[in-house]
């Protein structure tokens, strides 16, 4: 993966492939940036969860039918006041409105479909761009919100 020094950056663009090692590098780089800015544990939990779910969605849904080596682009920017994460996949995109409500009684026992809901719940603002294959997530530091 590119950007080997991302572990010390507050802003970086990384290109993980669909494997745990690459995903861990991205998550650790982002979490280290949060630590440098003194974000609390609840923020680490929220950001990590959202990033994890966004990457799983990008690889599982966005990249369905593409080779496993195909990378997604993760851009992160961490400042004292907020964290902005952008995940861009190479898939055809999707319509966020087409995702069924996983808490509806007819869906509650389905084993999938909760990732986007968790992202929306833990992030301050979530935006879909480029026809759905770019997800922009913004998280405001709680004590400054």
């Amino acid at each position: 993966m590119s950007q080997p020094n991302a572990g010390n950056a507050d802003h970086a663009v990384l290109t993980p492939a669909n494997n745990r090692a690459d995903i861990n590098v991205v998550e650790e780089a982002v979490l280290k940036a949060l630590d440098r800015h003194g974000y609390p544990e609840a923020s680490r939990f929220a950001v990590r969860l959202a990033l994890e779910e966004a990457l799983v969605n990008a690889f599982m849904h966005g990249h369905r039918g593409l080779p496993e080596s195909e990378t997604v682009e993760v851009e992160f920017s961490v400042s004292p006041a907020q964290v902005v994460l952008t995940v861009t996949d190479k898939g055809p995109g999707f319509s966020p409105e087409s995702v069924p409500d996983p808490t509806a009684s007819e869906n509650i026992e389905l084993p999938s479909g909760r990732g986007l809901m968790l992202i929306r719940s833990f992030m301050t603002e979530v935006r879909h761009e480029q026809g759905g294959n770019r997800l922009v997530m913004r998280y405001e530091r709680p004590d400054q919100a």
Binding site: F45, R48, V56, P111, S112, G115
Partner: peptide, 15 residues
């Protein structure tokens, strides 16, 4: 410490 939605899916399948 952490649990993803995929893990929730497995819990539902187990249930």
């Amino acid at each position: 410490d952490h649990l993803s939605s995929a893990a929730l899916g497995t819990l539902i399948t187990v249930n």
